[in-house]
């Protein structure tokens, strides 16, 4: 199974996403923002970073990159797409996912290990998890506050489209942000589209895929966390199924 990872100017986490695909057992394929070509991949990851320097708004200019035209059409046709951090912002800017991200409510960049509850394990990217399971992955952003109008939030909740929700137990953070790291509405860390093939989240599962290089796992030791690998094994399984 070939999983593409798009690199934009200013992308930071494309290498980690490619590595996560490899460790999960897939074939990683580098895609370039300026190419009007998805190279016949079976799924796509939009990785984190600061594409186009976050100029204008995070993800705004990337949303109109040549590769995105193809990707938006393919996603509407059912291609599994995962947007991580800046990738989530891009998915919102292209309206593949509803809502938008604004600056963290405490106005600071925040980097910590963040527990997330799996609210929906029926998407293309979450079938390897149990519903209600709490996973721990790194979080690092400045524009991470998920906002949407009340009608959209109600729709997301009613349709079970909140996939990841922030829960308490993070390593550290400003007072008042112990569970929810940025003021996101309804503690939303990640959502999916109606079909369940497009998923976006702010935290970084691709940084928690190999023991020795992941987040600290309480009770198990430093850098042992591999909770993020399940997203990548999930999509490989959903493609075979």
């Amino acid at each position: 199974m070939r999983i593409g990872v798009v690199t934009f100017p200013g992308t930071l986490d494309d290498r980690d996403a490619l590595r996560a695909v490899r460790l999960a057992g897939g074939e990683p394929v580098s895609l370039w923002h300026g190419d009007d070509d998805l190279q016949a991949v079976d799924a796509v990851v939009l990785p984190g970073g600061f594409s186009y320097g976050d100029y204008l708004r995070a993800g705004a200019i990337s949303g109109f990159a040549p590769v995105m035209g193809k990707l938006v059409d393919a996603a509407k046709g059912g291609l599994p797409v995962l947007g991580i951090c800046n990738g989530f912002q891009i998915l919102c800017e292209t309206h593949l996912l509803p809502g938008a991200m604004i600056k963290n409510a405490h106005r600071s960049f925040l980097c910590r290990d963040q527990p997330l509850r799996i609210e929906n394990n029926r998407t293309a990217w979450t079938t390897e998890y149990a519903e209600g399971q709490v996973i721990r992955v790194p979080l690092k952003n400045q524009d991470g506050q998920y906002v949407a109008d009340d009608r959209t939030l109600a729709q997301l909740e009613d349709e079970g489209r909140v996939v990841f929700r922030y829960v308490a137990g993070a390593t550290h953070g400003p007072a008042g942000f112990e569970a929810n790291p940025n003021g996101s509405r309804h503690d939303i860390a990640g959502i999916t589209n109606e079909a369940g093939n497009v998923v976006g989240l702010m935290p970084h599962p691709e940084h928690a895929v190999e023991a020795g290089f992941g987040p600290d796992q309480p009770g198990e030791g430093t850098r042992t966390g591999t909770d993020g690998l399940g997203l990548f094994t999930s999509v490989l399984r959903s493609l075979v199924a």
Binding site: I102, A105, R107, Q145, V147
Partner: peptide, 14 residues
């Protein structure tokens, strides 16, 4: 401008 109902963290900082 940011929508009136959206919190404006930059404005708040200023």
């Amino acid at each position: 401008m940011p929508k009136p109902e959206i919190l404006d963290p930059q404005g708040k900082a200023v």
